[in-house]
């Protein structure tokens, strides 16, 4: 294996930045949540790479990645339920139209 840890970390940093950009600019709740999932994925790649490059003895990175998957699955399920409820009540899932808590 001639991949270095730095290459993986740079790849994950690029993916995290792209996900941040999407989460801050897209208007649809669905795409915002998918971009947050992309950021979770970048972090998971980091953790798995750390577990691999630290010799696969403790495997703490992989255990932590499992917990991150649990939390992001919870988050995604709740976000989708909120999106359906918003569509039912407000007829839109565009983020900039959902401003009833502004005043």
């Amino acid at each position: 294996m001639d991949i270095t840890l730095n290459q993986v970390l740079i790849l994950a940093a690029i993916l995290f930045s792209i996900g941040t950009f999407g989460a801050l600019t897209r208007k649809s709740i669905v795409i915002v949540v998918m971009c947050i999932e992309l950021m979770f994925n970048a972090v998971n790649i980091n953790l798995v790479a750390f577990a691999f490059f630290s010799g696969l003895e403790a495997l703490r990175g992989q255990v932590f990645a499992i917990f991150i998957m649990v939390v992001s699955a919870c988050e995604l399920g709740l976000c989708m339920a909120i999106a359906i409820m918003l569509y039912r009540n407000r007829d839109t899932i565009q983020v900039d139209r959902i401003n009833m808590m502004k005043w």
């Binding site: 294996m1 840890l5 940093a13 690029i14 930045s17 950009f21």
Partner: peptide
């Protein structure tokens, strides 16, 4: 903002000497 943020992440990654074990 995102370009600066990604550049900051890259700088942090490259500036740290990671203690890497031999991958098996």
């Amino acid at each position: 903002f995102v370009i600066l943020f990604g550049g900051m992440l890259g700088l942090v990654v490259l500036s740290i000497e990671w203690p890497v074990a031999k991958p098996v």
